[in-house]
C-alpha cells in the first residue's frame, strides 16, 4: 500500500514532512470523534502543528475538530496524533460505542442521548 499523495491541495513534500513519511498504520485507532487531551506543554523546537494540537487539546478536542482547525486532511492528522500518543504527549479518549456491524448501539447510551437532545 503506497500513499504518495495523501492530500489534494497540499504539496506532497509538506505532508511528508508532517508525517515523517509514515503510512497510516497505528493511526486507525483514532476515530473522527476520539477526544484528544494534551499531557504536556508545547516545547521549543516542536513542529508547529504539534504545538497547535497541544494548545487546542488542553481541553478535550475531537480529531475532526483538530483537522478542521489545522486545515489538514483527517488521515494526516491521525498520523500526527499517533506520534504524539506514542511519545506520551497526548492521551486519547476513544468512543465507547464503536458499533460493530449488525449491532445496535447500547440502549443506555441512546437514553442518555435522548435526554440530552430533549434538553436542548
Amino acid at each position: 500500500m503506497t500513499r504518495r499523495r495523501p492530500g489534494r491541495d497540499d504539496a506532497p513534500d509538506r505532508l511528508y514532512t508532517l508525517t515523517g513519511g509514515r503510512s497510516r498504520s497505528g493511526s486507525d485507532a483514532f476515530d473522527l470523534v476520539t477526544l484528544v487531551v494534551s499531557e504536556c506543554e508545547p516545547a521549543p523546537g516542536m513542529q508547529s502543528e504539534h504545538v497547535t494540537i497541544l494548545r487546542m487539546c488542553t481541553r478535550p478536542t475531537a480529531v475532526v475538530e483538530i483537522a478542521a482547525s489545522l486545515g489538514l486532511p483527517v488521515s494526516i492528522v491521525r498520523i500526527m496524533l499517533s506520534d504524539l500518543l506514542d511519545t506520551g504527549r497526548i492521551s486519547a479518549r476513544h468512543p465507547r460505542t464503536a458499533r460493530v456491524a449488525d449491532r445496535l448501539p447500547d440502549p443506555d447510551i441512546l437514553e442518555q442521548v435522548l435526554v440530552g437532545l430533549r434538553n436542548l
Binding site: V33, L35, E65, R93
Partner: peptide
C-alpha cells in the same frame, strides 16, 4: 471555538 468540558470522554 467553544471548548468542551474537561470531563468529556465519549464522542457519538
Amino acid at each position: 471555538r467553544a471548548a468542551l468540558q474537561a470531563t468529556a470522554d465519549n464522542g457519538l
